[in-house]
Design a protein around this nucleic acid. Structure first.
Lengths: 224, 224
DNA sequence: CAATAAAATGAGTGATTACTCACTATTATA
DNA sequence: TATAATAGTGAGTAATCACTCATTTTATTG
């Protein structure tokens, strides 16, 4: 059915994405306040009155810059998708996968994980909002899948298969391998706060990445 | 600070948990309607008017049984925690880990994954709500961590360390191993709909579990 | 500096919100 | 069958919602 809700819905925001430099102070303030509130209490629980107050702005000013409350959400979320998708898929991934394709899969994966972890750490709040709202807004969910997964998946599949042919990876269904890589990455990146705070401190991010990749490559079982 | 928000907050709902049998038809209907709506559009986006309509009940009836809208949420979420936590940790896990502790780690894990996958499949909507709201409600998040993770973690840690001593698992930090198991499980269970629908069909749940466990144990790298 | 445009304002809008309450209908108990 | 308790109702309530618009403030330009 009405397929391109991404194209029609979010993509325009991505294209119309303003530089921060061409926003007024007030507009930037509205975005900042929205990110804060959406991340703290969610989109629906944050009222435009609150946003205005937090931003130090009249409520009407919000609607001068964004024609609806949902527009604010999309304006908040779009840049993250761009950072997640465009640089990742079109630059980072292409670079990582094409330029580094000769390197061992382990190194490629380490670089990938490091890249993603940094991105998430730098955009914690907006990513929280993004994931949060992806549950309910079709546009966002589809955009997320379209940008983050769809293109990336093909590349990863190709790399996986190439590395299988080269004997570097075991012969397993590509899908199973892809999912394993994906789950390791998401787990590494998303479930940091599940454990006790003192357990975090025990290992640095680099160590966490190293262990994650090591286990992904070699498993947890011994090889007696 | 005011620590036991779980005890004070959710636990009472768990204890006061009514049998379905001692609910009226209307009350059950309210719960069913709430689950449906909360899962579809989220807690905040679902109005009590909608719930009443969906449930075929006067709006006042809702507030006869639940003193606030949030109470409905807790009533929806509590049973899942009980099913997830108590039986899981206290029964399933104890059984799996104590009775089956002699079995290879691989088999224990397979059993665990199978158990969790079924639970999620059977409670898809409520688990969606649970995770969703855990983002924002401290009580729910803390309850989730307290019930699902905290106790389970210790048991898993002990098993992991025992299996390391027995030479069945590699010598790695327990934390890294625990996280790997956790990520595999969550990934297996939560990210089924990320892939194309036709890719699901390709492998059965049992096969997915088998590959997940295999990769967890042996990794994706070859052992030339 | 005057004229024009853009940005910002906040009181006001009708719709909707969670929730109350006086009341009726049903069921359980004595 | 009378009494009491529980279940159910829906109109009503104040508060809040996203959003509008006539007006004022600030910035830009000729």
């Amino acid at each position: 059915m009405n397929k391109p809700s991404f194209e029609e819905g979010l993509l325009q925001y991505v294209e119309e994405l303003k530089d921060e430099s061409e926003m007024t102070e007030k507009q930037k303030s509205i975005l900042r306040a929205s990110i804060k509130l959406f991340a703290e209490k969610g989109f629906h629980a944050s009222s435009t009155a609150e946003i205005a107050k937090e931003a130090g702005v009249a409520e009407g000013t919000i609607f001068r810059h964004y024609k609806s409350k949902k527009d604010i959400l999309l304006a908040v979320v779009a840049p993250v998708l761009v950072k997640f998708a465009a640089p990742f898929i079109l630059k980072d991934i292409r670079e990582i996968f094409k330029e580094q394709a000769e390197k061992p899969f382990k190194e490629v994966t380490t670089e990938l994980f490091r890249n993603r972890l940094n991105l998430v750490l730098q955009n914690e709040k907006t990513i929280r909002i993004l994931l949060q709202e992806a549950f309910f807004h079709d546009e966002i969910r589809e955009a997320l899948i379209a940008t983050v997964f769809k293109d990336a998946k093909e590349m990863v599949y190709k790399l996986i298969e190439a590395k299988m042919d080269a004997g570097e990876l075991r012969r397993l269904p590509s899908q199973a391998v892809f999912r394993a890589v994906l789950h390791s990455m998401i787990g590494l990146v998303m479930f940091r706060q599940v454990l006790d705070p003192d357990e975090f401190a025990e290992y640095s991010d680099e160590e966490q990445i190293a262990y994650t990749v090591d286990i992904l490559m070699n498993g947890i079982g011994s090889r007696e």
